[in-house]
Design a protein around this nucleic acid. Sequence first.
RNA 1: GCGAGCGUAGCUCAGUCUGGUAGAGCAUCACCUUGCCAAGGUGAACGUCGAGGGUUCGAAUCCCUUCGCUCGCUCCA
Length: 596
Amino acid sequence: MAEPKTNELMEKIVSLCKRKGFVFQSSEIYGGINGFWDYGPLGAELKRNVKELWWTTMTRMREDVVGLEATIIMSPDIWRASGHVDTFADMMRECPMTRKRVRADQVDPVSGMVYRYTSAKAKLTGFTVEKPFVFLLKKGEHPESARKKAKEFYAQGSADASMKDFGNVELMGEETSAVENSVDFHPESNVMLSEARPFNLMFKTYVGPVESEDNVAYLRPETAQAIFAQFKNVLETSRQKVPFGIAQVGKAFRNEVTPRNFTFRSREFEQMELEFFIKPDEAIEAISGNVAQPAAKGHPGEPQANWGWQTWHQYWVEERIKFYDSIGLPRTTLEEYWQKPEELAHYARATVDLLFKFPFGTQELEGIAARSDFDLSQHERFSRKPMGVFDDDLRAAWGKLDESKKQELTQRYYEARLKYLTKTGIESEKAAKKAKEDSEGLAKGQYIPHVIEPSAGVDRLILALISHAYAEEEVADEKGKAETRVVMRFHPRVAPIKVAVLPLLKNKSELVAKSREIFESLRREMNAFYDDGGAIGRRYRRQDEAGTPFCVTIDFDTLGEKPELLNTVTLRDRDTMQQVRVKIDELVPMLLQRIR
RNA sequence: GCGAGCGUAGCUCAGUCUGGUAGAGCAUCACCUUGCCAAGGUGAACGUCGAGGGUUCGAAUCCCUUCGCUCGCUCCA
């Protein structure tokens, strides 16, 4: 669990985030709003860099992935097909007295005497409260305690002030009966629970000016479903063929019960998701004659035609780890967690979580799930639009198979489809018929693609980068006294500011003029920052806290005090604090090389 | 959602028990000074003490409500 030390570290990080302008609490001047966070100037740059790198790595640098940017509000049918409307809506029951809620399916059975009342009356005024109240008296408790509780209940809900005095409350219609193992009472208050009601974790809104149940819509709780819903459109317009992927970066919303740990679990957050569509293993086998299984741990290399879902899954796990490494989270800072079969979501064949050791505990950064053909199948079923693809290679290959192979593959595909269809709750006869159709389709080159889904949380990644970058160092000041240097060791690729331009002295106009000139040339190429306030050492430290990897200082030698150093500057490295003398002309290419 | 703790200047905190009208250090800004790792001087700005209500002649301080943060439980695609 979180020791005091790690809390201290987290507090320092949160404090630095605010002080330097990485992260602010949303709506702070109005007291804040729980579970929502804003990115300040440095945070906005950092986040933009991370998203840009993800997008470049996942789409522009690949020929087999294309992008999508879908809306946040979509047809509510999408969330019925995905299962979010059902599973996000836990049924809750409430104690009418204490307002405490419990999960409807998690109430412990209790036994005792049940005391029922129909209403209560104030003796003085004759005011009556018409509300039933049911209380469970456990064995060994005095009957008067049930009556006292009932009076308390009626007094609480009464508009008549005289009922505040329990002596003035007359209970009506008392009935008692014994009950065994009832799950209708609140475990603490022993008051009968309300009817079970849904407690939806999706943000709900209304489309159009009329707030009626007919135009309810939800803010998307994940970005993935839009990709499935637009799968056919993208396939038809992008000139892609399976295997290929669709990538998306965007906001998602979950009305979390407990937002916690700074930005780690927020109610509004951003995801970077790839849905990578692959052929079912039966199709692979028909085309390639075999299905390649992962030979060993580690990266399986360049994609091959005979890869089955397990190899593709491993490939994407390794690709994602490579990405984290490239932005400054080395493999050693991550933990791979293979979910156990009983932990898997109903649609998943395998899920690997990439975990990062946050100061508050080791937590998920990204999940890479092998989701089978569940999602597209669901959308096909709910929308009644075909989600399958036609595969020339499969059709051509199928004709060359011998009969026994055809039968074997058809049978395997049939069983897989039947398993899915049965789980959806369709009656077995219909399921068998549909599965048979699907398996016959395979012979004609048709199938519903399977999916590998690497899904990352942007805000979590930002927090991981900040946590990992944060470092305190003991350094000696000019008097030799030890003091602490706080430095954000961001990888130059993600650092919000790439270079700071600093005139050694502010009151020498030649230095300032030259510095501005250099600043102007640098800012065209990268995010540069100009600072002439205060002593040079102080400015270095300010940049250390912002995580700026390079500082360029313009001094009198730049202006030619030592002729051999004319038009050179000092380039200071954030991590080593070492300085090198660099020609101004060489500055841009040198820096570009080091921030890419 | 429940329980406990906390909320005072940009940051870190004192003052709250015992009511008398708000302080320190650091940071910020301006000027002077400046010669490569948080230098110095002078001056300035910065808080309706999280918000709302109550008690009181008087509330940062006592009471109630509420919002936020932290921790534990719970929940967690």
